[in-house]
Every structure is written in C-alpha cells, then in structure tokens.
C-alpha cells in the first residue's frame, strides 16, 4: 500500500514537471514574443517603438536568453510562489489571478458533486428497473443532455431564471459583494450564485455518468455474487446497494480524473456567457495578448490541479477496490 502510494506520488511529480515544460513550450510556440505583440498593439494606436527600445524591453523581461535558461528561471521563481509579472496588466500574476483560481475550483467541484448527486441515484434506478418507463425517460433526457451545448443551456437557464424565477443570474457575486473582502455575507452570496453555473457545467457529465453507471450496474447485477447476497436473506435494497453498486462505483472515482479537466476547460465558454470571475476568461485574454507569464501560470496551475485530481481519484479507487489496495500482497 505504501509502495503504491509512493509510486503514485512520484508519477504525479514527474507528470507535473512535464506539464511545466509543455506549458512553457506551448506558450513560446506562436511566432514573435510579447514585445512583438506590444509593438503591434502600439502601432495599431498610432505610436511606434524604436529597435533599441524593443531590445531593452526584451532584456528587461529576460527574453534575450536561450530557451532552457528562460525555462529554468521561470520554474525557479514559480517554486518560490512568484509567477512573474503580467505584461498586460502590469501587476504580479499571483495578484491578477487572485481569488479566481479558487473560484474556478469551487465551481468545478460544485459541478462534480452535483454530477454525482444526480447521476448516482438515477443510474442505479435505471439499471435496477431496466426498460421501465422511467428508465426510458431518463435515457432520453440523458441523450438530450449530452447533445445540448453548455453555453446554449447557460443562455436558456439565465433567461428562464431571470425572467420567470427572479433568480440571481450571471456572475458569482451580487454587485455589492464583488469587491468586498471575505465575510459570511459574501460566502452566502456566493452560495446563492453557485447552483446555476454548477448545474450548467454538470449537465453533460451527468448524462455521461448515468449511462456509465447504468451499464456497469447492469453488468454487475448479472454476477453470481448478487444471487449469493439475496440467497442469504438480505432485502433486495440492501443486497443491491452493498454489493453490485459498490462494484459499479469505480467510474465515479475515475470521474474525478476525467471530468475535472473537462469541467475546467468547459467552464471557459460558460464563464464568458455567465460572467463568472473564474480563470477561464482570464486565460483566453492572456493567450490572445500573448501575456506569457499569466497564461503560463494559469495553464500550469490547471494542469497541476488535474494531476492532483487524478491522484485523489486513484486513492479513492484503492479504497473502493481492495484488489488494488492489496495488489502487492
């Protein structure tokens, strides 16, 4: 178990190193660098920059050194918690990102839990009552859920929520709390705003997970150990919940790993539509402006979050399935 744990953590660290290298390369891929982009934007507004000025700027930002050096300098500072300075915002990256990273995680986690809370009972019901009317209804709804684009649903829900229900729509805070510092009032305000984006983001994942849960459970229900459980005299509900459902639970643990990146990236468009203060829109702006340090920091952080999500899902799997836990025994 300990060996397994250490190996997982080791792999996670190696993956993070690769993510950082890839991040760095991807950011350097577009032709030109930040200074070129800066010059271009100045030219668009009518002013020009001399060649010497441009070179001085490149030296300032370390853009004149060889790539490996630039990478090492960047990683070294990141490890100290210094993500550099955003060249567009002219403020430290850490400050620009600020709460946004945690809000992104919060929205994604809320969506993940909502996905589970809806998919688990419906998946179980659909499998146990296969081909019942309710099963057909859930299946149909599930396919619609898979097919509808997130942002369209976001628009519809916003309209319905605002027009007919008088809900708080758009953003994660009411106007009076946007700039406020953290307080119970602000947290409560956040809680009130959270359901809508969480529901929008959870939609497709929920539909997918219901299908997976249903298929898995149908497989498990046919296995002899279910008959064993019922032959002991257990009630139907207990026999099913304790044995086949437990066995069919693996995809729920894995869903952390594969839904997480999807939720984070899926949230970019939805965040734009719903006006959420998450990192998605920020990443988009940073990439458009080739704001290297900001974009790099966001991509890196999201990547690492995903690795951590995978690690958590692996640990959950070992808890669910003793064969993994005792694999080395």
């Amino acid at each position: 178990m300990l060996v397994y744990l250490l190996r997982r953590i080791g792999l996670a660290v190696i993956t993070c190193v690769f993510i950082s290298i890839l991040t760095f390369i991807i950011i350097r891929l577009p032709p030109g660098d930040f200074v070129d982009a800066y010059i271009a934007s100045l030219a668009a507004s009518g002013s020009t920059v001399s060649l010497e000025q441009a070179d001085a700027m490149r030296r300032d930002y370390g853009l004149d050194q060889p790539l490996p050096m630039q990478y090492l300098r960047w990683v070294g500072r990141v490890l100290e918690g210094d993500f550099g300075v955003s060249m567009v915002w002219r403020r430290p990256v850490a400050e620009v990102i600020g709460d946004r990273l945690w809000l992104t995680m919060l929205v994604s986690l809320a969506a993940l839990f909502l996905t589970w809370a809806i998919a688990l009972p419906i998946g179980i019901y659909s499998a146990v009552r296969q081909y019942s009317i309710a099963d057909y209804i859930f299946t149909t709804l599930g396919f619609i859920g898979l097919a509808v684009p997130n942002f369209l649903l976001a628009l519809i829900l916003m309209y319905v929520g605002f027009r007919y229900l008088g809900l708080n729509v758009g953003g994660l805070f009411s106007t009076e709390y946007v700039q406020a510092s953290w307080s119970w009032g602000r947290a409560w305000d956040l809680a009130k705003h959270l359901p809508l984006p969480a529901a929008v983001l959870a939609l497709a994942g929920t539909a997918q997970l219901i299908r997976i849960m249903r298929a898995n459970l149908l497989d498990e229900l046919r296995k002899p150990y279910v008959v064993t459980a019922r032959a002991k005299g257990l009630s139907e509900a207990r026999a099913i919940l304790k044995y086949p459902v437990r066995a069919a639970l693996n995809p729920f643990a894995s869903s952390i790993a594969y839904l997480f990146p999807y939720l984070v990236s899926g949230s970019i468009i939805v965040s734009l539509v719903l006006g959420l203060p998450t990192v998605g829109p920020l990443l988009l702006q940073a990439l458009v402006a080739q704001d290297m340090f900001l974009a790099g920091a966001i991509v890196l952080l999201l990547g690492i979050m995903t690795v951590i999500g995978t690690l958590i899902s692996d640990l959950l799997l070992t808890w669910i399935d003793p064969r993994i836990r005792l694999g080395g025994r």
Binding site: Y225, V227, A231, K232, Y243, A247
Partner: peptide, 19 residues
Amino acid sequence: RGGRIGLIFQEPMTALSVH
C-alpha cells in the same frame, strides 16, 4: 432464504464479492 434453505454455488470465484 439462508434461514431455512441455504444455497451453495457452482463458481466459488464469482459467488463471493471481492469488495
């Protein structure tokens, strides 16, 4: 079930839950 009539299975591999 189990109290008056016990059942023994053919497949000892799959008749017990691995969990």
